[in-house]
Design a protein around this nucleic acid. Structure first.
Lengths: 155, 155
DNA sequence: AATTAACAGTTAAGTTACTTACGCATTCTA
DNA sequence: TAGAATGCGTAAGTAACTTAACTGTTAATT
């Protein structure tokens, strides 16, 4: 119907209209749950989340979160102090510190997610099944478009 | 095909898989442009963005950004010091400080957006027009689901 | 009309999460 | 085996936030 370039611009417009406020609300919800009920910050929550996803060394975490290694190192220090994360030297390469969630850390992360999911489910329940399947496909496409591996030939 | 509750859970899963990393990359791109080329932080960029959208008082900004009034007041102070934002007392209610972008602030915001849009356009160009229209509809639905006005009867 | 309450914004003091620069230990490489 | 590269941590400083307390302005109560 319209030319492809304009459609692209529209997509970008819609992204900037929709994603920041939506992400902001969800972040606020997580912050409330994480800090008021479990005494961790949103940033700490995100680190726990990445560790559980398998991003389990300081460098990988820094890369994934787009911050510096010292920032992660310090954050992990706090989390280790709270007993939520354990550091263990890698047997094969002793420079690497393998990060793992402790039982408590894992439980805490699950508890935060559980409460957040309940809240999100309530919000999303206004959508039709068709809208949901559309959202799933759209988010998948968006993620792949901005994925590091695509259109990066510098390695 | 599947029951509606499971579809909802899938939607939430996909949200958490896709939105944080995508938003993170875009934020990193904006940070690079804003800080290296224009000497402002991402947070300052977001405040400029909100002001241009018409969120033009300290309280409204705090509400929109989900932070405290002092945080905004301080950030605006920095932006005013850089000559990017002007404060003007509202004529009708002199408690209110009306915020406006200066010519320089407006130009800087546009310049950041221009560069970011070019980068986003390149990334999104791998998508088909069908995927783009789908993304537009999906983001719209997502935004409306998490909008403040829906399912909030406390006013 | 005077007093009180509510509101908009700022200031102050302290905290958290980040940054860069540097150092240490370990592993890879020439 | 020396030197470079890698992974992590420490140190010092900065940016952005928090809560508490304050000023000035408007609205509400009586």
């Amino acid at each position: 119907m319209t030319d492809p370039g304009e459609l692209l611009q529209q997509t970008i417009d819609r992204f900037w209209e929709s994603v920041p406020p939506t992400w902001n609300r969800i972040r606020t919800n997580v912050r409330g749950i994480a800090s008021e009920r479990f005494g961790v910050t949103v940033e700490q929550f995100h680190i726990l989340r990445h560790i559980r996803k398998g991003v389990a060394s300081v460098s990988e975490l820094a890369e994934a979160k787009g911050t510096s290694r010292p920032a992660i190192s310090q954050a992990v220090d706090v989390l280790a102090g709270k007993g939520l994360v354990s550091r263990r030297q890698d047997a094969a390469d002793r420079r690497i510190v393998r990060l793992e969630l402790t039982e408590e850390g894992s439980g805490l992360l699950s508890a935060i997610f559980r409460e957040n999911r309940a809240w999100m489910a309530e919000k999303l329940s206004v959508l039709t099944p068709e809208q949901m399947t559309q959202i799933i496909a759209a988010l998948d496409a968006l993620k792949s478009a901005f994925d590091d591996r695509s259109s990066d030939f510098s390695r």
